[in-house]
Amino acid sequence: MKQHSGLRVSAMVLLCAGTTQLALAMPASLPAVQHAGVISYLSGGVGSDQSAEMKGEMHNYPLVLEFAGKTNAGNDYLADIPVQISDAHGTVLVDTNARGPFMLVSLPDGRYTVTARYKGTQQRRVVNVATGVHEHEAFIWPM
Rank of each mutant, 00 (worst) to 15 (best):
S43K: 08
S51A: 15
G74V: 12
S106A: 10
S106Q: 12
F102L: 13
A79E: 14
N97Y: 15
S86I: 07
K70L: 13
D87T: 09
M103E: 05
S48A: 12
G56P: 07
K70P: 08
I85A: 02
G100Q: 02
F102P: 01
A73Y: 09
R99M: 14
G45K: 07
L104Y: 03
Y77H: 04
S86R: 10
T91D: 11
E57P: 04
M58W: 09
S51Q: 14
R99K: 12
G47H: 05
G45D: 05
P101E: 14
S106H: 14
G100R: 01
H59K: 10
A68D: 07
A52I: 14
R99I: 01
G44D: 01
T71V: 10
T96E: 09
A52H: 11
V92P: 05
L104T: 02
M54K: 02
Y61V: 00
S51T: 08
V94F: 05
F102A: 05
A52M: 14
A88F: 11
A52C: 10
N97W: 15
V92D: 15
F102W: 13
H89I: 08
L78P: 00
E57D: 08
M58F: 06
I81V: 14
R99S: 13
L78W: 13
G90Y: 12
H59G: 04
P62N: 03
Q84D: 12
P62A: 03
A88N: 07
A79M: 11
P62M: 07
A98P: 01
D49I: 01
N75P: 00
E57R: 15
V94D: 00
G44V: 04
V46N: 01
L65V: 03
D76L: 13
G74I: 11
G44N: 02
A68N: 07
E53Q: 15
G47Y: 12
Y61A: 00
P101K: 08
L65P: 06
A79L: 10
A68T: 11
S48G: 06
E53P: 02
H59Y: 07
K55E: 10
L65G: 03
A52Y: 10
G74F: 13
N97S: 14
A79V: 02
A88P: 01
G100K: 00
V46Q: 03
T91G: 02
